[in-house]
């Protein structure tokens, strides 16, 4: 539901410029998939939006306001480290709920936690397990459940399904899409991925970042009702053409980077 606007956003860690000139506009309810080669600054962009890194107030605005510090309005799903290992997986969600809804009773929090666990296909018996005793996929689902339970208007997901097997991944993609889709006021989602197909399946908008210091080199917007579906997208020539285009663009970036590296090497 929150709008995100980046205008000529640039960012450097110490001296190393990572984001060169990134402009993008996420309207409320957009599902933005960020593509781009490793190291191009996708995570960095997410961290800026989350408020974990400082940004220029004129260059980046969320909900019309500059980003000053992290907030419960912007739920982050970290790739790993999403859960505190010293408390049970359920307690992790409970802690987040306690923060977001301070006047809820203990019972209500537990009920909500179990509801979201159920939504993500997690059995009730996993509530008391330590993150360490869960599988990678279960951990990722708990982290995702926590983000959804926070009911934040903006969700920032950094390669949340990167390390999962194909079946679990497909299941979670569908779940996330359903949960996002069924709401009257859809959340705005930023979703980083390495997979073109994942992006095609989830996004309302695909944004490709070039090599660092990066800028947006390609965007594609799907009209409502024309978004690719898992069962039909591979037989849809239009989607396949877009898929080829995306692969080509990303590949070109990699080639030109390799070339630049070769030239710099001589």
């Amino acid at each position: 539901m929150l709008e995100v606007k980046a205008e000529h956003l640039s960012f450097a860690y110490e001296k190393e410029l990572v984001l060169g000139d990134v402009s993008l506009h996420a309207k409320p309810g957009d599902f933005i998939c960020l593509l781009g080669q490793s190291g191009c600054g996708k995570s960095t962009l997410l961290r800026l939006i989350a408020g974990l890194e400082k940004s220029d107030p004129n260059q980046l605005q969320v909900g019309g306001k500059p980003v000053e510090k992290p907030s419960l309005d912007r739920a982050m799903v970290f790739q790993d480290y999403g859960l505190f290992p010293w408390m049970s997986a359920g307690a992790n969600i409970d802690l987040a709920l306690k923060q977001k809804f301070p006047d809820w009773s203990k019972e209500k929090r537990k009920e909500t936690t179990l509801l979201w666990m159920n939504n993500l296909g997690l059995e009730e018996s996993l509530y008391d397990k330590l993150p360490l005793d869960l599988s990678g996929g279960q951990r990722q689902r708990f982290a995702t459940a926590r983000a959804f339970a926070l009911d934040a208007p903006l969700m920032l997901m950094d390669e949340p399904f990167g390390a999962l097997d194909a079946v679990t991944k497909a299941l979670l993609q569908d779940t996330v899409l359903q949960l996002w889709d069924k709401e009257e006021q859809r959340k705005t989602v930023f979703f980083v991925t390495h997979s073109v197909d994942e992006a095609l399946l989830l996004a309302t908008d695909i944004v490709v970042l070039g090599q660092s210091p990066s800028r947006v080199i390609y965007t594609h917007h799907f009209e409502e009702g024309h978004r690719p579906q898992r069962d039909t997208m591979f037989s849809d020539p239009e989607v396949m053409e877009l898929r080829n285009t995306l692969f080509r663009i990303i590949d070109q970036e990699i080639q030109s980077k390799a070339k630049a590296a070769r030239e710099a090497g001589v």
């Binding site: 989350a50 982050m76 970290f78 480290y81 505190f84 923060q99």
Partner: peptide, 15 residues
Amino acid sequence: RYLENAATLELPPVT
């Protein structure tokens, strides 16, 4: 990363 996780939850100092 633990501290960042805590920051996104806006945990108050004592918690």
